[in-house]
């Protein structure tokens, strides 16, 4: 009997350790890939700073790498374009996404929700090249008629199209946050004779706030890193502009456009890696902050 119990215990320990180690291996592998990508970026970006001074790279306002006489590698115009596109898409996607979430999670009739939720998820699955194509052909034409922009393809068109990519992410992540608010809290509030809107705004949203903020950060991270839509919709003129209706070149679009034609090991080549590194750090920070905020929510209950 005692022998048998021991052998069962040993076998169970073996199985459990096996499970634990395989999960550890999987997560170690994903960290390994992350480190590998970071190293690859850093190693390829560092030579850039030997050829271009960090001052001109980070503060230079002209990006003109192909000039035969005086090539310039200033990241500022690219950074500003990324910022403007992200800002426009966030300004559109956050209120719409939030409204959509509240409607789906708390107000919609179950039958409406059963149709709308999958629809939103399908929207998340549309390939970005399709959205980019739509922006290029349809959205740009509408924007041209309404706003009379400086260029037909511009940062505004890209930002609007990007918001269509952000909204589904916003909605599905922040709906999770709202659904994880315990039902007992909602019932407590309703039982005190508060209206639906009072309960949503004073109990449900505050309790779900960390998750919602994290959803916003993650979808902004998505906008910063998105490439295809901006390449196709923003016009890709590498000048420094604060006018959202003129065309612009984002960091991602720069890499996508120029990497194919650049000479291997040239200054331009390394400069593109430096842009990639900046992008990597930027999205890493956004995701990391979102993660911290999310974890804080889990501790609270």
């Amino acid at each position: 009997m005692a022998v048998k119990v021991k052998s069962i215990a040993r076998r169970r320990a073996f199985v459990e350790n096996g499970i634990r180690y395989s999960f550890a291996a999987i997560s170690a592998f994903s960290i390994f890939v992350l480190v590998l990508v970071a190293l690859f970026l850093i190693i390829n970006a560092l030579p850039a700073f030997r050829m271009i001074s960090p001052g001109t790279f980070f503060f230079g306002t002209v990006w003109d790498p192909t000039s035969p006489l005086n090539p310039l590698y200033g990241i500022v115009p690219l950074f500003v374009a990324t910022l403007l596109v992200t800002l426009i898409s966030a300004l559109i996607a956050i209120p719409i996404g939030l409204g959509c979430t509240i409607y789906l999670a708390e107000l919609a009739h179950p039958r409406v929700r059963a149709i709308m939720k999958p629809a939103v998820e399908v929207l998340a699955g549309i390939p970005s090249v399709v959205l980019g194509f739509f922006a290029l052909i349809v959205l740009a034409t509408w924007a041209q008629d309404i706003f009379d922009p400086v260029n037909r393809l511009n940062l505004f068109v890209g930002g609007v199209m990007l918001s269509a990519m952000m909204i589904p992410i916003m909605v599905s992540l922040s709906e999770d946050a709202i659904n994880s608010v315990p039902r007992s809290l909602k019932e407590a509030s309703y039982a005190l004779g508060t209206t639906r809107w009072e309960t949503i705004s004073k109990v449900i949203l505050p309790a779900a706030k960390p998750g919602i903020v994290a959803a916003i950060m993650l979808s902004i991270g998505r906008a910063v890193g998105e490439t295809m839509v901006v390449v196709m919709a923003c016009g890709n003129a590498p000048h420094l502009t604060f006018n959202v209706f003129s065309s612009g070149l984002t960091m991602t679009a720069t890499i996508a456009n120029e990497m194919g034609e650049v000479a291997f090991n040239s200054t331009h080549y390394y400069a593109l890696f430096a842009v990639g590194l900046v992008l990597f750090i930027l999205t890493f920070i956004l995701n990391y902050v979102a993660d911290i905020i999310l974890n804080r929510q889990e501790e609270r209950y």
């Binding site: 315990p182 809290l185 019932e187 407590a188 109990v203 505050p206």
Partner: peptide, 9 residues
Amino acid sequence: VFQKPNPFP
């Protein structure tokens, strides 16, 4: 008043 205490956070 409910079965499980449910104060607001």
